[in-house]
Design a protein around this nucleic acid. Structure first.
Length: 810
DNA sequence: ATAGGGTTAG
């Protein structure tokens, strides 16, 4: 009986639920048609019928042929698991003969996944004695690469060598790719170098290895080398190298690639165009990015996303958000987490909480559960917009948190000035066994800097070395900052010198570090070295340099660099730079010159400028200027006189206690609170903090006793309390009492009681050091023969043998 | 090809 199904139209199979059960040959013809037309459904039907067929027997040769064909069909239709199941129903001795089918199955898994199955299948095949061939290895290696399974990869590499297949181009290329994906660049390079011949794909695999690690120099080197040996890069080469070019900010190289792609007519290909506009965006050339974007005839979601990212990178964030609106109108399709993350980053940058919340709502509406990446970006957005409470709440409600989530919150804390909270979150992170990453250190190190937690800082440094983070320029910059703020300026310098690559921030951090330590000469020397290596300074550099001169009494140098800043470097001084000069003149007693300088400023002097001069007047007891400055400040209007602390201090300085008191009453009424002066000290890795008059510490009694004892000895040496530094109208005796329990003195006393004799006492203060304390600490070093280091908001004071490194220009 | 976390001053 002939088969009733017309061979040409396999789709017709579906209308025949019953196929005669005995014509295996007809099945075979049908299946071959299915394979050539990739028709899955009829194949499945045939499979079912075959299993129901009473004549079906796996010992029967034609049955085995049918199972073989079915497996092939399922492979052709990208259904590896189905094919695998079918293949397994063939008895083992028969399967042993089907080497090609094994290879095809492995290949199918290597493309479709699950990748583990490709590897399992490979070992199974080897176990039952089927010999792997050059059609097996590339695919099983591809699976290893996808899983970053280096152990199996290395094992299989050995098999390749054993089988004498190491010179095969496809296998070697797969090996290069495997090692690249597993981060083993040296091994990849070795395989690559040993290849007898290399095609574009091999070169691309090697190049992508260097691209992943952002090794711009090596990428360009390989690109030139491949052309030298006559292999021409293709579009995939370009797409691979463009992100590295962008990251390295090498717009000239980027333009060269752009030019080549235009000549080949592939510049408006989606991938190429997207890669190009992304590169221009990263290099800050938004005009070019826009031009490419508009010239592209076809754009996909990635194109839009890259363009929005380019706008954000080039500080045209608003334009980016408008593009997002347009993208939704044009309905590019569903929005991927990457796009959403990009847009949320934009709202964070604009500190546009309203739009940020809108998008938050939108993402909730879009997807049932928030993707981790999007959730992390939202978390960071809330933190950057300054609402730490919402960020914390959001964090706590996240069902799954990873290292990035913790890092975002830690950075959020420090961005909002809560260093202690940042350290607390880190402790929680460790308790939850979440692995710290580079970004965690980037949040943690500024927290250590802020509270001068040297022990934590050391731990961060050690951990960073172990994890290889110290290759990162930004991380080293954070280390330089941490060490200099924790009083270890020499260690900061070691980190700086060891860096194989430095950026502008590295130089600035080092200059600033020397500045706060009063090492102006060293700061200037670093500044000059910076020019030798061709690094251009920016406005931050000059703030560091000028304040370094100011802290070190280098008046002439400071004036000189201020001049050259605009004349040689074409950097327009900002108000902060003028402030540095006022500070420089004032600290060094040149009060009239400072006053004239302010009068001649092209910018309107703000309250900070007058305050700097005012502090100088206080130090040099130049009372006649004080009243005039006070009037100047008041003439600035209410928003400046809103600085109550300052105003109140001005009145106290000139003895107008009633006015001072009035200001404080007004301040209370408006709900302003002066941040209390507090000081802290690290002992055995624990931070102990004190505020003025603090009696809450467990060792309070001992501390008080120590201070009274010190006071008595200081008086014998000629110390006199300076009641001018108490801005309250109380009796001098009362003032002396207040002064004795200032927070910095409490912290020093605590240090004396608890630190080993050879150790310097290192205290940090959240405000400028008080003048009386400054004097008192000098006396204390004489009495105790100890070194005392005090870090205030602007600089370090190293006290020893009755002197201070600041030369008393505190 | 796009992507979550991040450094210097005030």
């Amino acid at each position: 009986m002939p088969c009733p199904i017309p061979k040409k139209s396999v789709n017709a199979v579906q209308s025949y639920k019953q196929i005669p059960s005995y014509h295996f040959n007809d099945y075979l013809h049908l299946l071959e048609d299915c394979i050539s037309s990739k028709s899955l459904t009829p194949g499945k039907l045939i499979h079912q019928n075959l299993l129901k067929n009473p004549n079906f027997n796996t010992k029967n040769k034609s049955c085995i042929t049918l199972l073989d064909k079915l497996s092939k069909l399922f492979i052709t239709c990208s259904k590896p698991e189905l094919a695998h199941k079918t293949f397994n129903s063939i008895p083992s001795p028969e399967r042993q003969k089907k080497g090609i089918l094994w290879n095809q199955l492995i290949r199918s898994y290597a493309w479709e996944g699950p990748f583990e199955n490709a590897i399992h299948l490979y070992y199974e095949m080897v176990d039952i004695g089927v010999k792997p061939t050059k059609f097996t290895y590339p695919f099983v290696l591809k699976a290893c690469a996808a899983l970053q399974d280096i152990d199996n990869g290395v094992k299989i590499h050995d098999h390749v060598k054993r089988d004498g297949l190491a010179s095969d181009v496809y296998i070697s290329t797969a090996l290069v790719d495997l090692y690249v994906k597993c981060g083993c660049l040296l091994e990849a390079r070795q395989v690559f170098d040993e290849m007898p011949e290399r095609d574009v794909v091999a070169w691309n695999a090697m190049i992508s290895g260097f691209s992943i690690h952002g090794m711009y120099g090596d990428v360009i080197h390989l690109l030139l080398e491949m052309q030298e040996v006559g292999v021409s890069p293709n579009s995939s080469t370009f797409v691979t190298i463009l992100p590295v070019i962008g990251e390295a900010n090498e717009v000239i190289a980027g333009k060269a690639v752009h030019g080549l792609s235009v000549r080949r007519g592939i510049d408006s290909d989606v991938m190429m165009g997207t890669g190009l506009l992304d590169m221009y965006g990263k290099c800050g050339w938004l005009v070019y990015a826009r031009r490419i974007f508009h010239a592209m005839t076809f754009r996909n979601e990635v194109t839009w996303s890259a363009m929005i990212g380019a706008c954000i990178a080039c500080d045209c964030t608003q334009e980016g958000l408008e593009l997002f609106e347009q993208m939704r109108v044009e309905d590019v399709g569903s929005l991927s987490p990457v796009t959403l993350a990009t847009v949320i980053r934009g709202t964070a940058k604009l500190i546009d909480l309203k739009v940020g919340k809108q998008i938050h709502g939108y993402t909730v509406k879009l997807g049932s559960n928030l993707v981790l990446m999007v959730a992390n970006t939202l978390l960071s957005m809330y933190a950057k917009c300054g609402i730490l409470d919402d960020a914390t709440k959001f964090f706590e409600e996240m069902s799954f948190k990873d290292s990035v989530s913790y890092s975002a919150l830690i950075s959020g804390c420090i961005q909002n000035g809560s260093a202690e909270e940042a350290l607390q979150i880190f402790r929680a992170m460790q308790l939850s066994a979440v692995e710290p990453i580079l970004a965690t250190m980037m949040g943690l190190l500024p927290a250590c800097s802020h509270v001068a937690a040297l022990r934590h800082g050391y731990s961060c440094h050690a951990y960073s070395i172990v994890r290889g983070f110290t290759a990162d320029v930004s991380l080293c910059n954070a280390l330089i900052d941490m060490y200099s703020k924790c009083g270890k300026i020499d260690v900061a310098r070691v980190v700086f010198d060891k860096m194989h690559k430095k950026d502008l921030v590295s130089w600035n951090a080092m200059i600033i570090g020397y500045g706060i330590h009063g090492l102006g000469v060293e700061a200037i020397s670093v500044f000059q070295n910076m020019q030798v290596v061709g690094q251009n300074p920016d406005e931050v550099t000059f703030i560091g340099l000028l304040s370094a001169c100011s802290h070190s009494g280098l008046v002439a140098e400071g004036k000189h660099w201020f001049q050259s800043m605009s004349q040689e470097f074409s950097i327009k001084p900002r108000i902060d730079h003028y402030l540095c000069i006022v500070d420089l003149l004032g600290r060094n007693g040149l009060l009239d010159e400072a006053f004239n300088f302010i009068q001649g400023m092209p910018l309107k002097p703000d309250v900070r400028i007058w305050n700097a001069l005012l502090s100088a007047c206080r130090v040099y007891k130049k009372i006649e200027l004080v009243e005039e400055i006070s009037n100047k400040i008041q003439s600035l209007g209410p928003e400046s006189t809103g600085n109550f602390v300052l105003l109140s201090n001005i009145y106290s300085t000139v003895g107008r206690w009633d006015d001072a008191a009035d200001v404080r009453v007004m301040q209370k009424g408006l709900g302003f609170r002066k941040s209390p002066g507090s000081s802290w000290i690290e002992v055995n890795g624990v931070i102990h903090a004190f505020v003025g008059g603090d009696r809450s510490h467990s060792q309070s009694a001992k501390i008080n006793e120590k201070l009274l004892q010190l006071q008595a000895e200081m008086k014998k040496l000629g110390y006199m309390a300076e009641p001018d530094f108490v801005y309250q109208d109380v009796e001098d005796e009362e003032k002396e009492h207040i002064l004795l329990y200032h927070s910095e003195k409490l912290a020093v006393a605590f240090g004396l009681l608890n630190l080993d004799e050879e150790k310097a006492i290192f205290v940090t203060k959240n405000l400028r050091v008080c003048g009386d304390c400054h004097t008192a600490l000098k006396f204390m070093t004489l009495i105790t023969k100890r070194q005392i280091i005090l870090r205030d908001t602007v600089r370090f004071h190293h006290f020893s043998e009755g002197r201070c490194s600041c030369g008393d220009f505190w």
